[in-house]
Amino acid sequence: MFTGLIQALGTIHPLGGDRFDISCRPDASHVILQDLAIGDSVAVDGICLTVEEILPQGFVATASDETLRRTTLGQEHRSAPYVNLETSVRVGSKLGGHFVTGHIDGIGCLQESVETPNSWELSFTAPVSLRDLWQHQIARYIVPKGSVAVNGVSLTIADCDPQGSWFKVAVIPHSYAQTNLSYLQIGSWVNLEGDILGKYVERLLGHQVPSSNHQEEISPTFLAEHGYL
C-alpha cells in the first residue's frame, strides 16, 4: 500500500525480457535505499514492483505479463526521462495522499498542460487505440473531487466529463517540481489508478442481499445520506 506522495525520482532501464533496473537519482537515493530489503514493494510510476536485488544506487524488479500489458512498462517508448518512486507505507505512518495500491487500471494520455498563478492544470484522456477497455476499468471511478493516481502521484480531480473519459487535475508547484509530471509532454502516456474506495463501493452495490424489515438496502441514495458520496 502507498500514499501517492512521491519520495524520489529515478531512472529505469530494461535488462531484457521482464526485468528492470531502477536507479535512484543521487540527490535522493538515501530516501529509497536507506532500509530497503529484498521482497519490499516500491511504487515505480505508480506500479507496485517487488525488490529482487539491491544495487548500490537502486534495485532490480520483474514485471508480470499483466503489468506489462496494463502499464507504460510494456510500451516501446517511455514518456519521461525519470520515474516516480515511493516505498510502501508503514503502519502508523502519516497518510497525506490517499490509499494507492500500485495496481494500475490503464494508460492515460496528457492532452493539455496550463500554468496558472497557483498551479499547473493538467488534462488527461485515454487513447482508445491503446486501451479499448480503459473506460470500463477506470472511467467509472473518475468523479469530481475524487482521488486518482497519475504515475503514482495522488491527485484530486478538479473537473471531468460525465463519462469519466476526460479529467483535469490541479498540481501545486511543489508536487509539479518534485515529480515527473513536470517532464511530461503533450501526448505523453501515464499510468492511472482509480480510487480503491470507489471500487469497494461498486463491489458492495453489485452484491446486495435482499433487504429485510430490519436491514436498509444499500444504494447510492443510502450512501449519500450517510456521507459516502
Rank of each mutant, 00 (worst) to 15 (best):
R131V: 05
A149P: 04
C160F: 08
W134L: 09
I196L: 12
C160T: 11
W134R: 06
V171A: 03
L192E: 01
Q137R: 14
Q137E: 12
C109Y: 00
L130A: 03
G146C: 04
T179M: 00
P162R: 00
A177V: 10
S175R: 06
Y183E: 09
R131D: 06
L204P: 00
A158N: 15
L110I: 15
V201Q: 01
L155I: 13
R203F: 12
Q185P: 00
A158H: 14
W120P: 02
V89W: 06
V89A: 12
W166N: 04
K168V: 15
A139C: 12
F124N: 07
G152R: 07
V89I: 14
V150A: 11
T101F: 05
I186G: 00
S165T: 15
P127K: 07
P117R: 09
I196A: 13
L204V: 13
L197V: 06
G97R: 11
R140L: 01
D159M: 12
S147R: 01
G198M: 06
P173G: 06
Y200F: 15
I138G: 00
A158V: 14
H103Y: 05
F99R: 05
V100R: 04
E193D: 12
G152Q: 11
G96D: 10
E193L: 10
S129L: 13
L133K: 14
Q135A: 09
Q111C: 08
G108L: 00
P144D: 13
W189N: 03
S182E: 03
I172T: 10
S123H: 05
P127N: 04
I138F: 10
D159R: 15
Q185G: 01
H136Q: 15
S123M: 05
N191M: 07
S93H: 12
G102N: 06
L184S: 03
L192R: 01
T156W: 12
I107A: 02
T116C: 03
S123F: 02
S93A: 15
A158E: 14
Q111D: 07
W134K: 08
V114R: 05
S113P: 01
G194R: 12
L122C: 08
K94S: 15
H136N: 15
Y176N: 05
N118R: 09
Q111N: 11
T101C: 10
V148N: 04
H136I: 06
V153H: 08
A139R: 10
A170Q: 08
L133T: 15
L181G: 02
L133D: 15
I104S: 01
A149R: 02
R140C: 02
H98W: 05
N118V: 07
G106D: 02
S119W: 03
Q135M: 11
P162K: 00
R203P: 00
F99C: 13
L197E: 06
T101M: 14
N118Y: 02
T125W: 00
H136M: 14
V128R: 08
C160E: 09
T116V: 03
S182L: 03
K168E: 10
W120F: 07
I172E: 11
L130E: 07
W166H: 11
G106L: 09
H136D: 15
P173F: 08
N118D: 13
R203A: 13
S165C: 15
P127F: 03
G108P: 01
H103K: 02
V128H: 07
V114F: 01
I186E: 04
G164K: 13
G108V: 01
V171Y: 03
